[in-house]
Design a protein around this nucleic acid. Structure first.
Lengths: 185, 185
DNA sequence: CTGAACATGTAAAAGGTTACATGATTTT
DNA sequence: AAAATCATGTAACCTTTTACATGTTCAG
């Protein structure tokens, strides 16, 4: 019985902190809010819900479900709420990304210029797609009543973070491309 | 026998592409060049080297080692070089990051303003540390002769990418902080 | 002579993704 | 009537991390 929760379990606590939700709702909310820097897959979500329930951090809400497979809504217990706050107050783990595409760029010197350029174009296209996708997210849309009523528009913060990242990455592509074209005229 | 190589195995091919190295040298090179967005741990490195050798993608170079535990230097076989090039030419996997810290920010609306501010300060400190660390990396230092002789300074590209990211993240912290302070004067 | 850096490895566990399986309800 | 979406779950697999284990060589 490791005392530590997994990152996914902590995220689940976060989504339940504002109000009760079903597994499916957590999944959808995660997709909307954090899909680009945080994935929650079914294979983790439902087992972790059971695990959190076994630990008394969440509990099932009486369900008004219709069929035999009705959706199960969960809410935080007082212990769960305490665990959630403790998590937010804990020192954060250092940032760690894994981007194989950058590794490719590192080795691009071994391609000829045309192929190296193609690699950068591909990167740019990917970042531009990301940027467009985030721009299409209307701030405030799709939030629950609680989220909209909150003093801080934190989902917008996350969106801004993504937009800033995408912009800086696209600029970087431009610079690298310019240098590639300068290197062998 | 899955035909696919793991990301770590592909990275190893990349480091061997310019010239032969030992496992230890790959580890050190990876630490220098990509540690912030790509980790290579011992527990992966050495087994993957054996696996690549078993697949005939790399081969042991005659070692002039002294002791019973001499370092083993590896080089790409022709098949390994082909696999390396094929990888560079493959379409890239979409970017996927996992940053639990951003998840915390998403839920920061449930803290009072002082605690939310603390969360942002912590983020900023982390990004600033990252930025300082990259600034301290002297472009071109620690490279091998081949790397320095290459037409493209790709390790510098990676450094620039990191610096751009850090700058945009720090700016974002400033903006969020300003908004937090405006929200409840 | 002691500690740091060199150098290679193994075992276990943790965590996540993918694919599969099932069935209800709603929309077209 | 078919297709999409809602909704929950399991099993297998893959990859990575962590901790452990071992021994050498060089510098202070």
């Amino acid at each position: 019985m490791t005392d530590e929760l997994t990152p996914t379990a902590r995220t689940i606590l976060g989504f339940l902190a504002s109000h009760p939700r079903s597994g499916y709702e957590i999944r959808e909310a995660a997709k909307r809010a954090v899909s680009f820097f945080w994935g929650v897959s079914d294979g983790q979500l439902y087992p972790q819900l059971k695990l959190l329930a076994a630990r008394n951090l969440i509990e099932a809400v009486e369900q008004s479900g219709t069929g035999p497979r009705a959706r199960q809504v969960w809410r935080l217990t007082p212990a769960g709420h305490a665990a959630f706050l403790a998590w937010l107050r804990e020192p954060s783990a250092p940032l760690q990304t894994r981007d194989e595409n950058l590794v490719k760029i590192l080795f691009a010197a071994q391609l000829d210029r045309a192929e190296a350029l193609r690699l950068i174009e591909e990167r740019r296209a990917s970042f531009q797609w990301f940027h467009r996708h985030l721009e299409a997210v209307v701030p405030g849309a799709g939030w629950t009543a609680e989220e909209r009523a909150a003093a801080l528009p934190t989902p917008d913060f996350i969106r801004d973070y993504g937009l800033g990242f995408a912009r800086s990455a696209i600029d970087w592509c431009d610079q690298v491309e310019a240098e590639l074209q300068r290197s062998a005229p």
